[in-house]
């Protein structure tokens, strides 16, 4: 039972001080979660703290590899809209 931070993390530091288990540490190219220390905030908080403040979709995964903040959930931008905008910009 542990979360993990994956590529896409922007190293904003928001999560690290909130972790009740001090499981999050600075690393290159991005912050990481110590899987031994992480408790998924069980018994500490109703919501996992790192995933509740993280501003980037898809960069914190649960133990099954599922994003806690799926695409579109934080910015409100529908994923297909974002993909279309990206394609349009790249075609310029």
């Amino acid at each position: 039972m542990a979360y993990q931070i994956v590529e896409g993390c922007v190293n904003c530091w928001a999560c690290a001080p909130l972790c009740p288990s001090q499981a999050i540490y600075e690393a290159k190219p991005h912050f990481l979660i110590d899987s031994v220390l992480c408790t998924e905030c069980a018994g500490e908080h109703p919501d996992p703290q790192c995933a509740s403040i993280c501003p980037i979709e898809g960069v914190i995964l649960d133990s099954l590899g599922v994003p806690l903040n799926p695409p579109g959930s934080l910015t409100g931008i529908p994923p297909e809209r974002l993909a279309a905008a990206r394609a349009e910009i790249q075609a310029r």
Partner: peptide, 16 residues
């Protein structure tokens, strides 16, 4: 101060 506690629709947190 890279951390933020809100999201604004005019901001993209990939700031580099």
């Amino acid at each position: 101060a890279p951390a933020c506690n809100i999201q604004c629709h005019y901001c993209n947190r990939k700031y580099d």
